[in-house]
């Protein structure tokens, strides 16, 4: 098996004068959950369409599971599951018929189809409503069914476009658990787009951030943090006087010191120790109730990238 489930080199796609995707080069490790993040209109859907061979690139190339998207698209689609922008479910049909149809498409045998459909519907808590027309279901239930459909034929790679959209917090957490275990236990690669950055932070081994068709950053969360943010120390308490802040700012390991909402926030230089700073605060007359070393969140990283000039 290849080390990477997806690789792309300078992938471009133009729609007339619009550069929907501009030189995208990514590497998605096999067996990982890969988050593909970007604001609306960034080129996420176009990327999925190109990777599934639904569109031809204007320039560049991509390989999915070792197959060229331009010349071997059928082989790619044979081996992938997908939940795209819309659930793509047939609302006049029952949940069972929807899965039966896709089971037939992927040539699962009749007993295998029956077993997979029962297992997946039970797993997602939909089995009791299997005979109901999908059109009568809630958005969350449909979303779960669409995820089940993408997993039906046990593909080694699944594309999921906003899979937890419309799910309640419990269902979202369960789905995150499922996706995580798919990757860790079954070696399935999950290519995930989401606007929920907290979710991506919990779930993704690596992320890529795109804006206006251009890749802004790619890597593990730790790598992105190392590239763009400094560690922070948050201190809850009182007595953070201007003189004390002045003394803190004078220290070489402190990049900045501010009081925000009654809380002292220190931005530290890399590898700075926090204990001497706490000692200094106490010695300076501050009352320290809680000290927390905060990592830069993915949301902070994402927002700072979006604020940068294109």
């Amino acid at each position: 098996m290849n080390e990477f489930a997806i690789t792309s080199e300078g992938l471009c796609r133009d729609f007339g004068a619009l550069h929907a995707l501009d030189g995208l080069s990514i590497r998605v490790p096999a067996g990982s959950v890969y988050g593909f993040l970007g604001p609306n209109g960034a080129g996420k859907t176009t990327t999925i369409r190109l990777l599934l061979g639904l569109l031809e690139p204007t320039a560049g190339r991509a390989e999915v599971l070792g197959y060229d998207t331009r010349t071997q698209a059928a082989a790619i689609r044979e081996r992938c599951g997908a939940l795209l922008e819309h659930t793509g479910l047939y609302e006049r049909l029952s949940a069972e018929d929807n899965l039966e149809f896709y089971g037939r498409i992927y040539h699962l045998s009749a007993p295998e189809r029956a077993e997979r459909i029962r297992t997946l519907l039970s797993h997602f808590g939909l089995y009791e409503r299997r005979a109901d027309k999908v059109g009568t279901w809630s958005h969350g239930m449909r979303q779960k069914l669409a995820v089940a459909r993408a997993m039906l034929h046990r593909p080694p790679l699944i594309f999921l476009d906003e899979p937890t959209s419309g799910l309640d917090p419990i269902a979202s957490a369960e789905l995150r658990g499922d996706l995580s275990s798919l990757a860790s236990k079954e070696g399935v690669t999950v290519f995930l787009t989401t606007h929920n950055l907290a979710e991506a932070e919990k779930l993704c081994h690596e992320v890529a951030v795109i804006r206006q068709g251009r890749l802004l950053a790619q890597g593990t969360l730790a790598e992105l943090r190392a590239r763009s943010g400094l560690p922070r120390l948050e201190v809850n308490g009182s007595g953070f006087t201007p003189e004390l802040l002045q003394s803190l700012r004078a220290r070489p390991e402190v990049a900045s010191a501010e009081v925000q909402d009654g809380r002292l926030v220190l931005e530290l230089q890399r590898d700075a120790e926090s204990a001497p700073l706490v000692t200094m605060l106490v010695a300076g007359g501050a009352e320290v109730a809680e000290v927390r070393r905060a990592e830069t969140s993915l949301e902070d990283l994402f927002l700072s990238m979006m604020e940068e000039q294109p």
């Binding site: 659930t87 793509g88 992927y106």
Partner: peptide, 14 residues
């Protein structure tokens, strides 16, 4: 119209 076409096209069917 019912947004089922793209998912169908993303399947292995010719």
């Amino acid at each position: 119209e019912r947004h089922t076409l793209e998912t169908l096209l993303a399947s292995r069917l010719a």
